[in-house]
Design a binder for these strands. Structure first.
Lengths: 123, 123
DNA sequence: TCAATGTAATACGGTTCCGTAACGAATGAG
DNA sequence: CTCATTCGTTACGGAACCGTATTACATTGA
């Protein structure tokens, strides 16, 4: 499962899907938040603040703030680790899973639509 | 030129490339700014504030601010339209073209790397 | 000439994010 | 028990973004 994209395909896909993302989802998520959200939903748990900060190369408050925002949107959930109560484990939610699925649909749809670059107004 | 992605491919690519984007480029660009930038560099000119606002479904001040920020980074350039001096035409820059190219490289590289999800630390 | 329209920019109050620094809570070694 | 370490959060000042409303300028047409 390896994708061999040509430059026009890679950028064309990014172009179309990002536009659609802005139109459908709006400005609520930053690039960092998207990266964090996808990692939580696609990589194997457990996920901690410290681990996510190291993964993205950012400071811990960045993760804390992103979890605040996305938690408020219902996309993720914080649970205190009972084995080591200093840790917080980030859990998935049904709403977050639906969100990620929707994002995947946008990417797939825009990938299929790549042949017609001028038809980006429908739906 | 149409891409038929499976859900795991679409989200896996988004996951890897977004993570790498955050790591390499940092927090300077919002999703809206990325969408605007890619449209300027991939869609046929001319590009105007009004046109971009309609394309993304946002108000014109959003575009004005994004052009301020990206212009300050050297990624785009504003030129007054001499035929109708109410209009501003957004022009590409060498620095912006290099930036878009770099983003394309990230996407292509992460697409090729999709088979090994645990090896996202090199380069 | 002068009013009406169109375009982009600016002003405003509010919210969020940024990085650095400081902070409490929990753990574990001595 | 004491104290250094680790973890996540909060505080702070500064910057950017948000949407709405307003402004300045150019163009159009009566």
């Amino acid at each position: 499962m390896s994708l061999d994209l040509r430059p026009s395909e890679a950028l064309g896909l990014w172009h179309a899907a990002t536009l659609e993302h802005v139109r459908v989802i709006g400005p609520d998520l930053t690039i960092r938040q998207v990266a964090i959200l996808l990692h939580i939903y696609l990589a194997a748990p457990p996920h901690t603040v410290r681990g996510l900060a190291a993964l993205l190369g950012v400071t811990k408050p960045v993760i804390t703030r992103a979890l605040d925002t996305m938690g408020h949107m219902g996309l993720v959930r914080r649970v205190r680790d009972e084995r080591d109560r200093r840790n917080v484990v980030i859990k998935r939610t049904v709403e977050g899973a639906l969100f990620v699925e929707k994002l995947g649909d946008i990417i797939i749809l825009e990938g299929r639509r790549l042949a017609a670059p001028e038809d980006s107004q429908s739906s």
